[in-house]
Simulated assay, not measured.
Amino acid sequence: MISASIRRTTGILNHLSTRSYPTDTTAKMTDLSKYKLNHSMLRVKDPKASVAFYEHLGMKLLSKIPFPDNKFDLYFLAYDGPKAVSHGKHRSDREGVIELTHNYGTESDPNYKPHNGNKDPKGFGHICISVDNIQAACKRISDAGYRFQKRLEDGRMRSIAFALDPDDYWVEIIGQNPVEKTEGVQETDLGTYTMNHTMMRVKDKDASLKFYQDVMGMKLMRTSENASAEFNLYFLGYGDVPAEGKTAGKEGLLELTWNYGTEKQEGKVYHNGNDEPQGFGHICVSVDNLNAACERFEQQGVNWKKRLTDGRMKTVAFVLDPDDYWVEIVQNEGA
């Protein structure tokens, strides 16, 4: 049984539902083409400050789900304007959602600080938003008083920036248009933004790519090889593969970062965010048929953190990827 402490820190109660799911999986098999990389969960210290930050980036608070008995609240944010990819959809029928988990009392605890994954022990790296005009978008963030890990003008890479949210999680900013075409343009349209991807470092690229493609049903959208710097990036997701690897306009991608040679190291290399120190919690995949999907995962021989049958919560499961990152599995209520 999943302990109360794990429930408080992972937010597994967020998908509590009165809906019943089919138990006869032969009646409706699961269709991997209908899966969605629904959300990424981050623990936060002060929800007011964090929600305000992500709303400044143009996101909308889709729902707040309080669990006072368990002393935590969940906040789901996503892009939802008329131009948004998933405008008006149920939160489980989307990609590119951010789930913020707030455990009561952290906002007044001077010793509490979520682990951002970029300080040792490393693991989770960042989330990323894509914008229409990167220069104007970064200026707007800076003018509001928010901090940066890397500004556009820093270093050699002049086409990406990293803002810092109130808990020092890195938020990568990329442009949907080439920087030379937006130079000098003063306006940015928040309605065109997308929550593009979530980045995690992986030990063994082959093991991770096999898991996310063969087991989770994702497609490899783009590969960026950086031999001189000894790392590769792999972008995976659901849906159509974009022409010419142009992924900036998509939402809900997973970026796997592989540093050369880590596969040869003994034992675990990266931190999953749920062992101490805690910060990033999980990614979540919503599926068309929860029972059928979990039956398929069982047949695939996955490592489980929580099966559907474990504990009291029968509407959520957690699978472990090769690096022990948690992958939450929930029913797509819009499927």
Rank of each mutant, 00 (worst) to 15 (best):
P121M: 10
A78F: 10
G123C: 09
G96R: 10
D80L: 12
L77R: 00
L62S: 06
N103A: 04
P110A: 04
V51E: 08
I127Q: 05
I129A: 11
V131F: 08
Y54N: 01
F76A: 10
Y54V: 15
L100Y: 01
L61S: 05
F124P: 06
N111T: 15
N70F: 15
H90K: 15
S86E: 14
R94G: 07
E55V: 15
G96W: 07
P82H: 15
Y112A: 08
A49G: 03
H102D: 02
P82E: 15
P82T: 13
G96I: 09
G125R: 07
D73I: 03
N111M: 15
N70C: 11
G123Y: 14
H102Y: 02
H102P: 07
F124V: 06
F72S: 12
I127Y: 12
H90L: 12
K60P: 11
T106A: 03
H56K: 02
S50Q: 08
K122S: 05
G117Y: 02
K89Q: 14
S92W: 05
S86I: 05
P114V: 10
Y112K: 03
G58T: 02
R91A: 07
M59Y: 13
Y75C: 12
A52G: 03
V85F: 09
C128T: 07
H115Y: 00
Y75V: 07
H87Q: 11
F53P: 04
Y79W: 13
D69V: 14
S50K: 06
K83V: 09
N103E: 10
G125M: 01
F67D: 06
N116S: 10
H115V: 03
P68G: 07
K119T: 12
I65W: 02
D69K: 06
P66A: 14
M59N: 02
D120Q: 14
I129S: 04
P114M: 03
I65R: 03
Y112Q: 01
P68N: 01
D73N: 00
F67T: 04
A78E: 03
N111P: 13
F76R: 02
H102M: 14
A49N: 08
F72T: 01
A84W: 11
K60D: 14
L74Q: 06
V97D: 02
L61W: 10
L61R: 00
C128G: 12
D69Y: 13
C128E: 09
H126S: 13
I65V: 04
L77S: 05
N111V: 15
F124S: 09
E99K: 00
E107D: 11
A78Y: 13
Y54H: 00
K113E: 13
S130D: 01
I129V: 13
H56E: 01
V131N: 09
G125Y: 15
K122V: 06
N116P: 01
E107Y: 10
T106R: 04
R94K: 14
D93L: 09
A49C: 08
K71I: 10
R91T: 05
L100T: 01
G123K: 07
H126I: 01
K71W: 08
E55G: 10
N103V: 12
C128L: 11
F53D: 00
H87C: 08
A78H: 12
P110W: 15
M59F: 13
R91Q: 06
G105N: 03
V51S: 09
F53R: 04
M59V: 15
Y54K: 05
L100E: 00
I129Y: 07
L61D: 07
